[in-house]
Design a protein around this nucleic acid. Structure first.
Lengths: 212, 212
DNA sequence: CGAGAATACGAGCAATCGCTCGCGTTTACT
DNA sequence: AGTAAACGCGAGCGATTGCTCGTATTCTCG
């Protein structure tokens, strides 16, 4: 038993040099671009490697397979989105705002994030993923669902959990459905698309918001 | 010039026997099943042939390629949908109905059609298609868009064409987005999903409908 | 410096998929 | 009966794709 004083302990994160960390970031940047252009399924790992300026073999030194790339990219997106909008969401006095203001404050930043990161919706709004939602899309989905549910709870504290979660699912689904139209719209027509998105959300939320 | 008294005239539809027509229908049935289970991209032509009980070679005696199968299936869906619901749509006195009744009359048959034909949404609500919407999904999309636009025009004849078409696109998109949740829901929970779908549609339509 | 790990390469393997091709069988028509 | 076209088969081709492997280079640290 004296063979190893430090047990092999599952190879969670292998030793990595600074250059390697940079490479991983480059690969994720490249993957975001390629996913944005082609979607998850049609994006090839060789294309991602080429976009990152490395060989396929090098790519697989950092990620065990294609899904892991999407996973890591999704995790990074979740982190960035959280970091960017935490302040915008947290100290909002929901009761004091009317519905239109609330929608502006919540929708606009998310739209801006998606316009700035076109690869996001490739992982979030596409049904390409392997094994349904299990995989890369799930953490993103869960993150948004949680935030929307929290807003709903603030809007109407009386709302039963079941109804609140169902409404959150519906709202996220609407968002998913309308996002491509907003993001892919040419600059001049984007505000109109955003306006329609807010109309849909407002129409669904209005009966919930006025808890009379 | 006496070579052929009957010019070859482009081989539009090749001579086909009754057995062949039946085979084509069988193939489309099989394709609907496979598309429903796997989506367009992941469905293999060999799997469709196997599901139809024929060999890959025989399949390609009737359809030149995979997309043509989807195209033909989409055309058949459009025809069936039109035949089923024409009466339901045509002689509706929109002005006399309130919004909830109108939604019931329009949404319920379409939902029923989709529950009965689970392959439909694989062609209608999936972004798998080759070359964007060009291809099989387009005729379905156009058919629905036209009907929705007609209803909107009846609801508010003053509505400018541009606004009406945009609203129609939004409504169809919402339908697309919510349909999978409705169709894939287990029997007992389906009515609840349908109710949410109608809530969303009603919320968006209400400001358009009351043309005060 | 020297050893071992991390990084890097890119040809190419194994599996998949849309589709073809050669050939045999059945049907329609004269 | 005889002919041509329609129907049918299934092995497998050509292209693609996720990923591997042998090998070479660079970095870290004692």
């Amino acid at each position: 038993m004296t063979e190893e004083h430090r047990v092999t302990e599952e190879p969670r994160t292998r030793r990595r040099q600074a250059r390697g960390e940079r490479r991983m970031a480059d690969i994720l940047d490249a993957a975001a671009k390629v996913f944005a252009q082609l979607g998850y399924e049609k994006a090839t790992t060789n294309a991602i490697a080429a976009a990152a300026g490395i060989s396929p073999g090098s790519l697989y030194q950092f990620f065990p397979n294609k899904e892991a790339i999407a996973q890591a990219l999704a995790d990074r997106f979740v982190a960035e989105m959280g970091g960017t909008h935490r302040t915008a969401f947290e100290n909002l006095d929901f009761a004091a705002l009317d519905l239109d203001e609330l929608l502006d404050r919540v929708v606009d930043p998310i739209v801006a994030f998606n316009v700035a990161n076109p690869g996001f919706k490739a992982l979030f709004a596409r049904p390409d993923m392997p094994a349904g939602l299990t995989g890369a899309a799930q953490p993103i989905q869960s993150a948004l669902l949680g935030r929307v549910a929290a807003i709903l709870a603030a809007l109407d504290p009386e709302l039963p959990d079941e109804d609140r979660d169902r409404a959150a699912r519906v709202l996220v689904r609407i968002f998913q459905a309308m996002l491509p139209a907003v993001v892919d719209a040419p600059e001049p027509e984007r505000p109109a698309e955003v306006r329609e998105l807010k109309k849909v959300l407002r129409g669904y939320l209005a009966p919930i918001a006025r808890e009379d």
